[in-house]
Design a protein around this nucleic acid. Structure first.
Length: 394
DNA sequence: ATTCTGACTCAAGACGGG
DNA sequence: CCATCTTGAGTCAGAAT
DNA sequence: CCGGTCC
């Protein structure tokens, strides 16, 4: 579940590390996205009524396809270049955490049975959400769908978040989009939250700049990783009595987990018996990922019309007209996106952007990007609600 | 008065028509 | 050996320091 | 912008 309390800690202590951005600002950017997390959300919410989801004639769930298809079209229409990253084998250290989640799901499954028997609609709704799991089949379906849509897919050897961060560090992508704060712990240089929310919830995209996070917290990257472990992560239990506040205080004071432990009042604080912080640290700093030089260059190709029709219409009962219209959108989006990011801003082409083989959009990303961010600022101030819309959700 | 815990809750997509 | 995997935010209680 | 529908 990410890093406990890290959002608040950064908000309180590292002002300026987070910028509010607009979705449209990422035109032309390559963005790494954790696929499993998206699929999970689709299974929770798309087409659900009671404990039912969208299904094909064979009774197989299709909510994930519906969700992934539409969202990806949306993303491509906005000119973003998504790279979907799928999970591989979880590290051993995560097994205990996974077992916990498994148990929680089983409990929910029991409650669900009861709720169905007693006919309690609200409870059926509640518990069925908690029993959702992303299966291998869902992942396969989505990989197939994305490939047919011409969107690159990465299969991570282990944690998708770690792979995303690695791609970002190597500048294979501009940023990582996730809701999971441990993207930062893995070292994503640029990290986006709520990238998909603005359509549904009108939240601004939050862009975290890790360099500024470190600056604000007064830590180096190694210390930041230690801070995250001390706050609580998927790999280690927390030390009772130590939360985000004291964790930050202690790391600032002592500089590393080793020294913190040396100076820790063992009567006051009890360190969990196996507390594999060194192993956890290793997983954050040197996770199992594809070596960046072995990552093939990402390509966004034209959609395979017949393949999509076969998969969605023939095999899964999607409405033919809808699918065809959607494919048209894809084609249009592809043409629009094939122009560079700079052209979309200035209306002219920049010849310099073709020099490097891999850098058409990472060169603009480096330092100058700050200027465009500054240009956006007034817009943010102006967007301060108020006018015609009213804003009340009734 | 501050800080952490733990148990709890809630909501989560996207499109198109009126 | 098989199949596996979500997450955050907010709040409110009570306990420890 | 709200409400039903998507499969």
């Amino acid at each position: 579940m990410g890093i406990k309390g890290l959002t608040k800690l950064i908000a309180d202590n590292a002002h300026g590390a987070v910028k509010e951005q607009k979705f449209e600002n990422y035109f032309g950017r390559k963005i790494a996205i954790d696929a499993s997390m998206s699929i999970y959300q689709f299974l929770i919410v798309v087409g659900r009524s009671g404990s039912e989801l969208l299904t094909n004639d064979a009774g197989e769930v299709t909510s994930h396809l519906q969700g992934m298809f539409n969202r990806t079209i949306r993303v491509l229409e906005a000119g973003l270049k998504p790279v979907y990253v799928f999970d591989g084998q979880p590290p051993d250290l995560k097994k205990r955490e996974l077992a916990k989640r498994f148990a929680r799901r089983e409990d929910a499954a029991e409650d669900l049975v009861t709720a169905k028997e007693t006919g309690n609609e609200a409870d059926v709704e509640k518990y069925s959400k908690k029993t959702v799991k992303v299966t291998k089949q869902h992942n396969e379906d989505c990989r197939k769908l994305l490939r047919l849509m011409g969107v690159p897919v990465v299969e991570a050897p282990s944690e998708a978040e770690a792979e995303c961060a690695s791609l970002c560090k190597a500048e294979k992508v501009f940023a990582v989009a996730s809701e999971d704060m441990d993207s930062l712990t893995y070292g994503s240089t640029r990290f986006l939250r709520h990238l998909m929310e603005p359509t549904s919830r009108k939240l601004p995209v939050l862009e975290f700049d890790i360099a500024k996070v470190l600056e604000g917290l007064g830590l180096n990257m190694d210390q930041f990783v230690d801070l995250c472990i001390l706050c609580g992560c998927d790999y280690c239990d927390t030390i009772r009595g130590i939360g985000p506040q004291t964790a930050l205080k202690m790391i600032r004071q002592h500089g590393s987990l080793e020294i913190v432990l040396e100076n820790l009042n063992k009567d006051r604080y009890q360190v969990p018996d196996p507390w594999p912080y060194q192993e956890a640290r290793r997983l954050f700093k040197e996770p199992l990922v594809t070596p960046p030089e072995k990552v093939p260059e990402f390509k966004w190709t034209a959609p395979d019309t017949e393949g999509l029709r076969q998969l969605l219409v023939e095999e899964n009962g999607f409405n033919n007209d809808r699918v065809m219209k959607a494919i048209e959108k894809l084609k249009v989006a592809k043409n629009k996106a094939s122009q560079g990011r700079l052209e979309s801003f200035f209306g002219v082409s920049s010849s310099s952007s073709n020099k490097r083989k891999e850098a058409p959009d990472s060169e603009a990303s480096a330092g100058k990007q700050v200027k465009t961010a500054a240009a956006v600022k007034p817009a943010k101030a102006a967007s301060k609600k108020g006018p015609a819309k009213g804003g009340k959700k009734k």
